[in-house]
């Protein structure tokens, strides 16, 4: 019998690094927090709202995202999009992900 909590922890750890990749991939066009959450959900990428919103802020402070407030609607919303740096980093990161995939798959054979 494997310990479910250990298994769950490992799955969470395994997914954590890939979440940022998924977030970056969905931000080539502008999105606000909740729309991004829904986009990811539709792709079966599970990320908690409480994780995503702070993550967006952090990526912005690192210069990977740009943001602007849209006040034209009844409620103001903050829209995020990949910056040029972010786009460059995303392309590199994607290559790295493919490398990792190949390496791990080879190791798991």
């Amino acid at each position: 019998m494997i310990d479910q909590s250990i298994l769950n922890n490992l799955i969470v750890e395994l997914r954590r690094g890939t979440q940022i990749l998924a977030v970056l991939s969905s931000l080539s066009k502008t999105q606000y927090g909740y729309s991004l959450l829904q986009t990811l959900e539709s792709k079966n990428i599970l990320i908690e709202a409480g994780t995503l919103y702070p993550l967006l802020r952090r990526l912005e402070s690192q210069g990977l995202l740009t943001s602007q407030w849209d006040t034209s609607e009844s409620r103001p919303r903050k829209y995020y999009q990949l910056s040029d740096d972010g786009m460059e980093l995303f392309v590199t990161l994607k290559k790295e992900w493919k490398n990792i995939q190949a390496e791990i798959n080879a190791a798991l054979e």
Binding site: Y32, G33, Y34, S35, L37, A49, Y53, R57, W69, R75, P76, R77, K78
Partner: peptide, 13 residues
């Protein structure tokens, strides 16, 4: 800023 952002996100949800 976080206050506004969080408020928008919560109402969106």
């Amino acid at each position: 800023e976080i206050k506004e952002e969080l408020k928008a996100n919560i109402y969106d949800m």
